[in-house]
Computed example of a mutant assay.
Amino acid sequence: MSISRIHEICDQISELEKKLDAAIEEQSGRLPYQIDGKRVIFNADIEESHQHAKMGLLRWFMTVRPQNYLTMPFIYGMTVPLLFLDLCVSFFQLLCFPVYRIPRIKRADYFVMDHRHLAYLNMIEKMHCLYCSYVVGLLAYATEITARTEQYFCPIKHARKILGAHSRYENFLDYGEAERFHEKLQKIRIKLANEAEQEHKRK
């Protein structure tokens, strides 16, 4: 299969992903809530049904398996290294991206903490959701920082297929594509610099 055909298939996949996102967004739009800034507002009937569905703390604690409590220190003990990771990648981006003219990432785009507006979750469930939302957002944020760094220094695909490839991977050079490598690498870096400049103008 030719490289052009592979790029064509990738473009088709990208287009289908956009259609899927639009369909999911449309489906979500049918749910009875409105977004007002950072607040999510349900109508009165839905809010009342959510209140009825909420499980009380005593009942909730009684439904949790005893072995689950044993894992809690390990789960929430990860808070310290995760916060350290957050600090490190944020500082790395702040310090290094302007030097290499890599477009900076808006941190807030990756952290969505809206589960606290769901009245059918009790205080403990909201805390679990807050923690998970933070971790998932942090890993996505760190992945994008790493992806842009890799795009600058080593935009080369691997010989074997990898799972969970980041969003910029498909635009990397093919494995073993040695012809005019440094020229192509420079073009990629120029493209990143242009992206950074456009991002700066939008601010």
Rank of each mutant, 00 (worst) to 15 (best):
I13N: 07
I13L: 15
L82D: 01
A196P: 03
L121D: 02
D114K: 13
H52V: 14
S4K: 14
L121E: 06
E170D: 15
V99G: 02
E195H: 01
A193E: 05
D11W: 04
K54S: 13
L118Y: 10
E144W: 11
I13G: 05
D36C: 05
N194C: 09
E8D: 13
C129M: 15
R148D: 01
K157E: 06
L130I: 07
R59H: 14
R107L: 08
Y120S: 10
E26D: 12
D86E: 04
M72I: 15
L138C: 01
V40C: 00
H115T: 10
L82M: 13
K157Y: 05
M72Q: 13
L20V: 12
G56D: 10
N171R: 08
H117I: 02
Q151F: 12
R202C: 10
A193Q: 01
E177V: 04
E47V: 02
K126P: 13
Y76W: 12
I75P: 14
L83Q: 10
N122F: 06
P81L: 08
F153P: 11
V80S: 11
I9P: 03
H7R: 15
T63Y: 05
G176H: 03
E26G: 03
A165V: 06
F91R: 03
C10D: 14
A53W: 04
H117P: 09
E170W: 04
S28Q: 12
V99R: 02
I145N: 05
Q67I: 14
L85K: 09
S28I: 14
G176F: 01
M113A: 08
Y69E: 04
I188D: 00
P98R: 03
Y33P: 04
V80C: 08
I13A: 11
E8G: 10
S90E: 06
R180W: 05
Y120A: 09
Q67F: 15
E15V: 06
S14Q: 11
R189L: 06
Y175H: 03
Y76R: 04
K19I: 10
A119F: 03
A142H: 09
R104I: 01
E8I: 02
F111A: 00
V112G: 08
R104S: 07
M123P: 10
L20N: 12
S49C: 10
N194I: 03
F153C: 08
F61K: 04
D45W: 00
I145T: 00
E25V: 01
Y69L: 11
Q151H: 07
Q198I: 12
F181A: 07
R148C: 05
A140T: 06
T149H: 00
L94H: 11
D36P: 07
Q93E: 14
Y141W: 11
H117E: 07
K187P: 07
I6N: 00
M62E: 05
P73A: 04
R5E: 15
G37M: 04
G164P: 01
R101A: 07
P73T: 01
A23Q: 08
I188W: 04
K191Q: 13
H200R: 15
E15Q: 12
K19A: 15
T146F: 11
H117K: 08
V136G: 08
S4M: 13
R180V: 05
R30V: 13
I13S: 06
I162K: 04
D45C: 06
H7S: 11
R107K: 15
F111G: 09
R59L: 09
F181D: 02
R116M: 08
Y131V: 02
M72R: 13
R148T: 07
